[in-house]
Every structure is written in structure tokens, then in C-alpha cells.
């Protein structure tokens, strides 16, 4: 019998190699897998590349991982936000590398990685400094830049409901990057607010089919969005 449920956060995180690329779901604090980020902090891997829309706030979660010096490089669309103090300090001190990625390009690079597409062309960022050094092509008279797929070694996902097969639903705007990151991670681990029996989640409502998911830990109401 397939059973992707694990009992602990540590078991969900599993082995993570130094230098791994970690995809972290969420948009701001909504849909962000905070308990799994804590698990990654406990696990101890360093020299990480982190892909997330934002660069963390305060001194917990992603910000704590960075503050501990475990993140070498971060890719995000919106690093600077209210409370992103840790990131800004590390960045000013030259202790973290930043790659700014337009939000739609970020989502599509993840989707492409999950869909086996190595690169794609987009009009986003043409003629701007975010297109510098990138291949450009013209299609039907319009300019496009080439962007490459962005796969991860490990994706950290927050779901609303999960079953033992790894089928997932999300809640409202908590969906955001989670489904594309689940696709783009070689290993995708999930913290879920609720669990269901196989067959209990209406197949018409499953957003992430279990094929994209490796391990699920049940964290009932342990991680309400701020």
C-alpha cells in the first residue's frame, strides 16, 4: 500500500545535501510551510540555494535560515518587504547572492522544470537589466528573452488537505507557488492542515495530484497564516 504520510517533520525533510536547491512555497506568510522550514533549520544542510517569492521577514522561518548563514543564494521576485531585515543586512554585507526574477517568470520557470521544458521565451523583462546576458529572439516581430527551467532538489509545500497518496488541495490564496513548486522539486514534501482517507477528496477538486508528492506530514492548525 502506498502511504506518503510520515509521522514527524524530520522524517518529512529527510536527508538534504549541502548545496541543495530548496523551493519554498508561499506568498508572504500565506501558504508558507513554516514548520518544514524549521525542520530544514534543524536538519542542518548549508550552502543552500533558496527559491521563494519573498526573502523572509522578522527573525523566524526563512529569515532564521538565512541568519544562521545557511543560504548562499536566493532567487525571488520581491526580496525587500516590510520586515525583511535579515536579508537586507546579509545582502549589504555581501553574504548572500540575490537573483531577482520577475514573478511570472519565476512561476513559469518552476512550471517548466516540472513539465520537462528546459527553457522558454517570454516578453517579460525585454530591454531591461533583468534581461542582460540572456539570449533574445524575435517571433512575429516581437522581442523575447530566453529563460531556463528552475528545478529544485527539495520542495517545501503547505497544503490544506492531503491523503496518503499525496493528493492535495489548498486554501484560497494559500495555493500561490505551492503547486508549481511541488512539480519542480525532485522531492516534494508537504505539511498539511488536514488529512483525508484516499478517495475522500473529490477527484474534481484535487489541485496537486499525488504523483508530484513524496512525503506528507499532518500539522493540524499548527501553522495558521499570519
Amino acid at each position: 500500500m502506498i502511504d506518503k504520510f510520515v509521522r514527524s517533520i524530520a522524517e518529512a525533510i529527510g536527508a538534504v545535501a549541502d548545496g541543495a536547491t530548496i523551493l519554498v512555497g508561499g506568498f508572504g506568510s500565506v501558504g508558507q510551510p513554516n514548520a518544514l522550514i524549521e525542520g530544514l533549520i534543524e536538519q542542518g544542510a548549508k550552502n543552500l540555494t533558496v527559491v521563494a517569492n519573498n526573502a523572509g521577514t522578522g527573525h523566524t522561518g526563512l529569515a532564521k535560515l538565512m541568519e544562521l548563514g545557511r543560504v548562499r543564494r536566493i532567487l525571488c521576485s520581491f526580496p525587500r518587504s516590510a520586515g525583511s531585515v535579515v536579508f537586507e543586512e546579509l545582502y549589504r554585507a555581501g553574504k548572500i547572492e540575490l537573483e531577482i526574477v520577475p514573478q511570472g517568470t519565476l512561476a513559469e520557470r518552476l512550471r517548466a522544470a516540472g513539465a520537462g521544458i528546459p527553457a522558454f521565451f517570454t516578453p517579460t523583462a525585454v530591454g531591461t537589466r533583468l534581461a542582460e546576458g540572456k539570449e533574445e529572439r524575435e517571433f512575429d516581430g516581437r522581442r523575447y528573452v530566453m529563460e531556463t527551467a528552475l528545478p529544485g532538489d527539495l520542495a517545501l509545500i503547505e497544503a490544506w488537505r492531503a491523503d496518503r497518496l499525496g493528493n492535495l488541495t489548498y486554501r484560497e490564496s494559500g495555493r500561490n507557488f505551492n503547486p508549481v513548486m511541488a512539480m519542480a522539486g525532485k522531492v516534494a514534501v508537504v505539511q498539511s492542515q488536514h488529512i483525508a482517507e484516499a478517495g475522500e477528496i473529490d477527484p474534481e477538486t484535487i489541485i496537486t495530484p499525488g504523483i508530484f508528492v513524496d512525503r506528507v506530514v499532518h500539522l493540524p492548525y499548527g501553522d495558521l497564516a499570519a
Binding site: 521576485s77 520581491f78 526580496p79 525587500r80 537586507e88 545582502y91 520577475p102 523583462a125 531591461t128
Partner: peptide, 11 residues
């Protein structure tokens, strides 16, 4: 600008 935030503006 050291770490500007582009978000979805370019898209």
C-alpha cells in the same frame, strides 16, 4: 539600487 523588488511589474 542594491536589492530592488520587481514582483509582477514586468509581467
Amino acid at each position: 539600487d542594491s536589492a530592488p523588488a520587481v514582483g509582477g511589474a514586468m509581467d
